[in-house]
Design a protein around this nucleic acid. Structure first.
Lengths: 117, 117
DNA sequence: TAGTTAGATAGATATGAATCTATCTATGCG
DNA sequence: CGCATAGATAGATTCATATCTATCTAACTA
């Protein structure tokens, strides 16, 4: 298990707004803008009560974490749950719990610059 | 679903060192100090390669998150996985994925002081 | 083509978080 | 009881992160 990568994934889930996005995407409300099963970025600001750049920032993180997909549609961007994204998280948890981790002692990546100083 | 509380739980998992602790506790190595199935705080600094106060800080977060239990044994403190702790995380994920969330629109707690300003 | 709109990006700011040294408190031992 | 030890806490530092305003880029429309 790559603790560094896993930690990144959990950190992506560590914001209430981002959790709300995922919940919305799991059961997308019918909106006029987006095709069925997706949510248009233009609707997310109201759902989240945050400014447009903030929403964009959060979505960027979710996409980078592999939890969400973004599809451009002209001016619009539609977001959807990435297939297998949350399942990957569940797998990480299962692995963590079963400790099927091989040589645990050497698996801690050092992704932090501060540790290099 | 309480997104604020859930986010806290995921944030607790969002550090590679803390993930490593959980993995160690899932399959505790046989140490001279701790009783079987647990890990003594005195052994964690070496496992993690961090200073004692840093380890203490991390363990405090894991205990507060309900993922780990701490048991004083004289001068020593033994840590173990909290029963149902990681299972709770799995449940949150399952809930998130199945979107059995009731009225999603009102569930975002506002735990952040910055939002009050 | 000029103007409008959607959404990403840049930059600033305030807050949060990981890490360390130093210190304190509790426990154990001679 | 004085000293040693374990581990929590305090404080400082550095880096990360959430949020906003402003701006840019791409797409659309008249």
């Amino acid at each position: 298990m790559d603790f560094g990568k896993s930690a990144e994934l959990f950190r992506a889930l560590g914001d209430p707004g981002r959790l709300k996005v995922l919940a919305l995407l799991a059961a997308p409300p019918a909106e006029a803008c987006a095709p069925a099963g997706r949510i248009c970025a233009c609707d997310l600001t109201e759902h989240l009560g945050l400014s447009q750049p903030t929403v964009s920032h959060h979505m960027k993180l979710l996409v980078a974490a592999g939890l969400v997909t973004a599809t451009k549609r002209g001016r619009w961007t539609d977001y959807a749950l990435a297939p297998g994204g949350l399942t990957q998280v569940q797998t990480l948890l299962a692995d963590l719990q079963s400790a099927s981790l091989g040589s645990v002692g050497t698996e801690l990546d050092q992704p932090r610059p501060a540790e290099a100083s």
